[in-house]
């Protein structure tokens, strides 16, 4: 077993937040829009779907809007941005020795349970993000910064959902012996 640092040393949250805020601002200044993630994942998936079942894509209104006919769903800024996120995340992790094939999980559950929960959580997230027309990057961060009312309402809903359910699933995350 590799020796791991007792606690990964992450940036101070306020400094990271300030840097992220500057990045968000610069993005708006240059492009007029903010950041995004779920849309990129969505489009990559639709691109794959278009390879396998193109007629279905053409006849489903929601999908046709992105990939109907000759349109390429990958021809959108968010796809490039998502590619950048993967590279940036990897580089940051690699420079600090955090690129490890591992599972982060609460001490009361096994990695396998964590995988199942992550998969289920992902399903909810994916569905909810499309329903809300964005995720924490696209709606909360970007919409929040330009004071979109819907984005703020969305943000509050996300936190509300998480906090309301937190106690019921505490076994997934909390150390043993209660709170």
């Amino acid at each position: 077993m590799l020796q791991r640092p007792k606690r990964d040393r992450y940036w101070d949250p306020y400094i990271a937040g300030a840097l992220l805020g500057v990045l968000l601002f610069v993005t708006f200044l240059l492009t007029g829009h903010g950041l995004g993630s779920s849309g990129g994942v969505n489009r990559i998936l639709v691109a794959l779907e278009d390879l396998v079942v193109p007629r279905h894509v053409d006849t489903t209104p929601y999908l046709a809007g992105m990939a109907g006919g000759e349109r390429s769903p990958l021809d959108h800024w968010i796809v490039w941005q998502v590619a950048g996120i993967l590279v940036g995340g990897f580089l940051s992790g690699w420079l600090r020795g955090r690129v490890r094939l591992e599972t982060r999980h609460g001490p009361q559950i096994t990695p396998r349970t964590r995988w199942v929960m992550a998969f289920i959580g992902g399903i909810f997230m994916g569905y909810g993000a499309r329903l809300a027309r964005g995720c924490t990057s696209g709606q909360a961060l970007s919409g929040g910064a330009v004071l979109s009312a819907g984005s703020w309402a969305f943000m509050l809903a996300v936190f509300a959902g998480g906090y309301l359910l937190a106690w019921f699933v505490r076994r997934l995350w909390q150390p043993g012996g209660g709170s």
């Binding site: 492009t31 007029g32 829009h33 903010g34 995004g36 993630s37 779920s38 849309g39 990129g40 969505n42 489009r43 992105m66 959108h76 800024w77 968010i78 993000a129 027309r133 964005g134 995720c135 990057s137 696209g138 709606q139 970007s142």
Partner: peptide, 9 residues
């Protein structure tokens, strides 16, 4: 005109 585009796809 320059179109405002944005949003999560």
């Amino acid at each position: 005109r320059m179109v405002m585009k944005g949003g999560c796809g």
